[in-house]
C-alpha cells in the first residue's frame, strides 16, 4: 500500500498512470494475485453494495431501538432544501445503515456502522455523471486505497479514534472516489479528502446502548452530504490550506486524545443523555 496520500497522487502525476491502475498494480505485486482476481473481488464487493441497497429499499424490518426504525424511506420524497439527487443519496445511505442494523448483508467500508456512505455516494455520482460500470469500479479502487492509507496513518474504528475514523473516513473515501470519477485533478482529489476530514474532525463515537443504530445510521447521512460538498468545492477550485496527509495526522492525534467514554463504549455523548440512558435501560433491564 502507498505510504501517504501525496505519495500515491504524486506517483500517478509523475508517471502519468491513472490512479486506479497504479493501485491495482500495487495490489497485484504486493499480494501476488492476478488482475482478474482483483477485478472479480471488486465486482463482488460492488455487487453486495448494490444488493444491500436494493434490499434495504424494499424489505421491512424492525430495529432493536423501535424509534430508529423506518426513517430512511422518509427521505425518498422530493427535496425541499436539498436537491432531489442529494436527498435521495442520503436516503440510500440511511437505508443501508438501517439494513446493517437489521442484520442485513453489507460490505464494511471501512466499517459496518459506516457502510451506507460510500455505496450511496458512488451510485448517485454514477447516475449524475452518467458513468459506466467500469468507471464506478475504478472509483471504488481509489476509495479503498485512500481508506487503507488513512487506516495506516491514523485509524479505522470508533473504538480507536471515534466516529471521525468511521463516518469521517467513509466520507473522505467517497469524496476522493467521486472527484476522481468526475475527472478531477490530483490536487483536487487531495483537497476533497482534506476538506471532508476537516469537517468531521473530532467527531465522537457515542452509540446509544452501545448498539450500531443511533446515531450511526443518520451519521451516514452527513457522510454523504459532506462527501458531495467536499467534491463540489474541490472541483470548483476551492482549496484546502492544510494538505490531506496533514489532516490525517491531525485526525490520528485527535483520536488518541479522545476520552474512553467517547470511543464506542456507549458511555458518553448522546449515549449518556437522559433519553439515551432510558433506551439502554428499556433494552437491557433484564441483564443489568
Amino acid at each position: 500500500m502507498f505510504e501517504s496520500i501525496s505519495n500515491l497522487l504524486n506517483e500517478s502525476k509523475t508517471t502519468g498512470i491513472p490512479l486506479h491502475e497504479l493501485i491495482i498494480n500495487d495490489e497485484m505485486e504486493f499480494h501476488n494475485i492476478p488482475k482478474q482476481i482483483i477485478i472479480e473481488k471488486l465486482n463482488k464487493s460492488l455487487g453486495i453494495m448494490k444488493l444491500s441497497l436494493e434490499k434495504a429499499l424494499v424489505e421491512d424490518f424492525e430495529l432493536p431501538i423501535k424509534e430508529a426504525s423506518h426513517q430512511a424511506k422518509r427521505m425518498l420524497s422530493p427535496g425541499i432544501f436539498c436537491g432531489n439527487n442529494l436527498k435521495e443519496a442520503v436516503g440510500w445511505a440511511m437505508a443501508i445503515g438501517e439494513y446493517n442494523s437489521g442484520m442485513g448483508l453489507i460490505v464494511a467500508c471501512p466499517t459496518a456502522g459506516s457502510s451506507g456512505t460510500l455505496p450511496a455516494v458512488l451510485f448517485k455520482a454514477k447516475e449524475i455523471l452518467d458513468k459506466s460500470d467500469e468507471d464506478i469500479l475504478n472509483a471504488l479502487v481509489v476509495a479503498a486505497a485512500i481508506g487503507a492509507i488513512i487506516g495506516n496513518n491514523a485509524m479505522l474504528s470508533g473504538s480507536e479514534g471515534g466516529c471521525q475514523a468511521e463516518i469521517g473516513v467513509a466520507s473522505a473515501m467517497a469524496a476522493a472516489a467521486i472527484t476522481y470519477m468526475a475527472g478531477g485533478t490530483h490536487l483536487q482529489i487531495d483537497n476533497a479528502i482534506a476538506l471532508t476530514l476537516k469537517n468531521l474532525l473530532g467527531l465522537v463515537c457515542d452509540p446509544v446502548a452501545g448498539l450500531v443504530i443511533s446515531p450511526c445510521i443518520k451519521r451516514n447521512a452527513i457522510g454523504v452530504v459532506n462527501a458531495f460538498l467536499a467534491a463540489e468545492m474541490a472541483l470548483s477550485g476551492v482549496t484546502s490550506i492544510i494538505p490531506a496527509d496533514e489532516v490525517v495526522d491531525a485526525m490520528m492525534k485527535v483520536g488518541r486524545k479522545m476520552p474512553y467514554e467517547l470511543k464506542e463504549t456507549g458511555k458518553g455523548g448522546i449515549a449518556a443523555t437522559k433519553t439515551g440512558k432510558r433506551i439502554r435501560k428499556s433494552l437491557f433491564s433484564d441483564i443489568l
Binding site: 493501485i23 473481488k41 442484520m103 460490505v107 476509495a143 479503498a144 487506516g151 495506516n152 450500531v212
Partner: peptide, 14 residues
C-alpha cells in the same frame, strides 16, 4: 492495511 480489500472487501451480516 496492505490491501484495498482490507477496507472494502469484508462482506458481512451487520
Amino acid at each position: 492495511y496492505t490491501s484495498i480489500f482490507d477496507v472494502i472487501g469484508h462482506i458481512m451480516v451487520g
